[in-house]
Write a protein that binds this DNA or RNA. Structure first.
Lengths: 208, 208
DNA sequence: AAAAAAAGCGACTGATCGCTTTTTTTATGA
DNA sequence: TCATAAAAAAAGCGATCAGTCGCTTTTTTT
């Protein structure tokens, strides 16, 4: 376990607080103004610190955004894990997973995540910086799944169904950017739950 | 039907050609450099015209991007309709639809569409400009579906399944930005086909 | 308390942004 | 052939970008 110092993270209370303020400011700026509006000037302004202070904590804008990605995905993940781990064994495992994932993803800060992901496609520096955080993110989802999922499914099949859910929800989030229809979202979530459940039943060896 | 003049579109051959060059240049710049790199200077450079010429054809960058969105989605749609309409009546309707949609979407230019969509979230001017084109896009998909789909499904149920497919594929496209695995993409497409087919069978009133 | 290190400040840089204005070239109808 | 308008080029506009630098203030160490 590397120390905070080895990770170039601040140790003093004031610096830790400043870093936190910068990350939430970056997240909020991305949410409200997009990548284009989330300038270093704007982020510093929102954080209530000088631009010089920003660049003391983050050597570049890419490093700031990478930090923001980690900050946000930590929150999304812990929200999902908290909701999902509350599921009782006798409850519907699939419905609980879908609803927990949707609740974790269907939030304004997911837009910030999307802004960073899209920007990283054409920004090699940012792309490299966010890679470790992204990998850790998905690793933790797999771990959670191994921990909570019923054991009758082998890993590849589970991965396939997991990604069907993730893809569909990501796609739904995108569609919601243009038109948001809460009733239709619910309908699609229920369809997804039925679909996944049907696939599980089929695989469990329950041929009519 | 409004005339080209009424739409402020150029009538002379040279101007038409310049407009076309600007639109393809905008598409390519968005694809390769993202929204951040697709500056008016860069687009004009790629098109081989002056920046002044660009602003003669498009009053703002938002108008240029809106034009690019229409230009690209026209191509995506015609590609889909062409592939899909070749489906023979006795063929698997679902598989043909999924494969045609995937072939139409799984292309570099879809990244350009995504860049515009994401940018429009926080750019009111762009958002308003692309609205009509977006609506027309989805209208034409619905029309195609009405034309080709088997008639035994009522509209709401069809819409639900259509969006399950669209969302899943959009999400897959997003996931491919980070990690692209051709084999897994195929696997997920086949899963989607099985899923939709199962839903159709169920709705068609074919209880075992 | 003195010295050293860390954190923060705010003015400033060169480059580039979207866009405008002015000038030159090109196409067209009388 | 020439007047005229459309189209493109060239030059330039103020604003803002990511990032830097010299300096001050705050905190920790000696």
């Amino acid at each position: 376990m590397p120390t905070a110092a080895a990770l170039n993270e601040p140790q003093q209370a004031r610096a830790i607080e400043t870093r936190r303020k910068l990350l939430t400011a970056a997240r909020d700026a991305l949410m409200e103004c997009g990548y284009h509006g989330a300038t270093t000037t704007e982020v510093a302004r929102r954080a209530g610190v000088s631009q010089g202070a920003l660049f003391r904590h983050f050597p570049s804008k890419a490093a700031l955004l990478s930090g923001a990605l980690e900050f946000i995905s930590e929150d999304v993940l812990s929200r999902f894990l908290h909701d999902f781990s509350e599921t009782l064994p006798e409850e519907d495992f699939v419905a609980a997973g879908v609803e927990a994932a949707w609740a974790a993803l269907d939030q304004p800060q997911t837009s910030a995540l999307l802004e960073i992901l899209i920007a990283s496609r054409t920004d090699p520096k940012l792309r490299e910086l966010i890679r470790p955080a992204s990998m850790r993110f998905y690793e933790r989802i797999y771990t959670a799944l191994d921990q909570f999922a019923p054991p009758f499914l082998e890993r590849p099949r589970m991965t396939s169904l997991l990604w069907l859910m993730l893809d569909m929800m990501q796609g739904r989030f995108l569609a919601n950017l243009a038109v948001r229809d809460e009733g239709f979202n619910r309908l699609q979530r229920e369809l997804l739950i039925r679909v996944v459940r049907a696939q599980l039943d089929e695989t469990a060896g329950d041929p009519c």
